[in-house]
Simulated assay, not measured.
Amino acid sequence: MAHPAPQPHTPEPHGTQPHHHGHEHEHGHGQSHANDSHGSHGHRHPEGADPQDGLAEMLDLDAELFAAHLANLTERLAHLAGDGVTQVVDLGAGTGTGTFALLERFPAARVTAVDNSPVMLARLRASADARGAGDRVHTLETDAGTGLPGVTDADLVWASASLHHMDDPATALAEIRAALRPGGLLAVAELDGLPHFLPEDVVPERPGLEVRCRTALDALHAEQVPHLGADWRVLLTAAGFTVEEEHTEVLELRAPFPADAGRYAYLVLNRIRGTLDGRVDPVDLTALDALLDGGPGDVRHRDDLVVRSTRRTWTARRPADRP
C-alpha cells in the first residue's frame, strides 16, 4: 500500500477525505496526505512557491526510497486477490504512487484514482498519460468519507495513509464496503507518523532534539487526527469485513543513501518545523532551524542520517455471502 509519508498536522478542514499532508505521506507513498502529521499548513515555503509542489516532491521521494516495501506489499496483495482483478480503487491517490504500482501488479485492471485535490489529480492524470496508461486510469475528485459516486463492484480498494483522516471511520468503511463487490478486498496501509531521521546527538548541546519535536507533534496529532494509530482490525471487523492479514514492518535505511535522501529529510523536517512554534522550547526551534538553513550542518549534506518508518497494513475482505 503506498503510503504517502505522513505529515505534520496543522489545522485544516479535513472533512472525511485525506488532505494533502504527507505525515507523513508519511509519508509516503502515493498519498496526498500523508503523506500524515499532516497538513499543508504550518510549514514554511519560499515566497511565491506552491506548497503542493513540495508535498508532491516529498511523496515521490518517499515512494522512491521505499519502493521495495511497496513492491512486497502489492505482491502479497496479488496473492490474496487472485486472478481476475479488473476494477481497482486507489483511495487518496496523491501523486499516483499506488495507482501505478497497482496498474503494474494487475495488468488487466483499470484504476479509479480518488482524491479531493484537483491539483494532485491533474498531476496524476498527466503522469498516466506520459506513461501511456491514460486509458487505464480514471480520476475521481470527491470526499471519500461521504461516498464513492459511480464506483460499484470494485475488486480491490487500496487505502494508503488515508483512512486516519476520516472524521467518521465507520461511515467511510461502510461506503467503501458498498463500493466493493462481494468477496472484494480492502487493503489499508498506515504509518505511525513521519519518518525519523536524526541521531540522538545531531545537535550535541541539545541531545534528543528530534524526540522532543516528535512528542510535541504527537500531542498535536492527538488533538487533530484522533484516528492516527487506530486499531483498524477492530474498526474493519465492526464494519463487517473479515480481516485476512495484518503486518507491522519497521523499515530502516542507512547510508549510503540514494542521492535524494537528504532532500527527503529536509522536506519532512521542514513540514514539522512549521507546526512547532509555541509547542517546544525556542532553543530547540533554533537548533532545528540550523539543520534546515543550507549550512554545513543541513540535513541535505549529512551522512549520519537514518531513515526509520513503521508501517502497518491490514487486508480485509467483504464477505461473499452478505450484502
Rank of each mutant, 00 (worst) to 15 (best):
H23E: 09
D90H: 01
V306Y: 03
H301P: 01
D192K: 14
V211Q: 15
V243Y: 09
D62P: 03
E57D: 12
G147P: 02
A174N: 04
D281V: 11
L163P: 02
P323S: 13
P18G: 14
G295N: 05
A230T: 00
L148R: 13
R271W: 02
G48L: 07
R206K: 14
P207C: 13
L103Y: 02
P256H: 02
E223W: 06
A216N: 13
D260F: 03
A130R: 13
Q17E: 06
R322G: 01
D129Q: 13
A189L: 12
D192P: 09
L103V: 04
H227M: 10
E26S: 12
D277P: 00
R308W: 05
T146D: 13
L156A: 04
H165K: 04
A265S: 00
P207S: 15
N72K: 11
P323K: 05
C213P: 01
P182E: 04
P204N: 14
R123A: 10
S32P: 05
L80F: 12
G92A: 01
T95W: 00
S32D: 04
V268W: 03
A259I: 10
A78G: 12
R110H: 15
G22V: 10
P319L: 14
R76S: 09
L217C: 10
A259E: 15
T139K: 09
R212Y: 03
T97C: 07
L269G: 06
H164P: 06
T275Y: 01
R177G: 13
V88D: 06
D298F: 00
R279F: 10
V119I: 09
T310P: 07
A219M: 06
R233H: 09
E64H: 11
G145L: 02
T215D: 14
L267D: 08
F100H: 12
G54P: 02
A239Q: 02
A161H: 10
V111D: 00
D192S: 14
P18C: 11
A68Q: 10
T315V: 15
V85T: 15
A159I: 04
D293N: 08
L156V: 05
A159R: 03
V211R: 15
L186H: 10
A290D: 12
G48F: 08
F106N: 06
N270Y: 00
T74V: 13
V202C: 10
A71Q: 06
R318E: 12
E244M: 06
L305E: 08
G229E: 09
V243T: 13
F241E: 06
L236M: 04
H20P: 05
A63I: 04
D143L: 07
T286D: 13
H227W: 14
R123P: 03
A56I: 01
A290N: 04
A230Q: 03
E104K: 12
L285Y: 01
A239S: 05
V306N: 12
E205P: 01
D192V: 11
L191W: 11
F241C: 02
R279A: 14
G54V: 02
R131M: 10
L305R: 09
G278I: 08
T97Y: 06
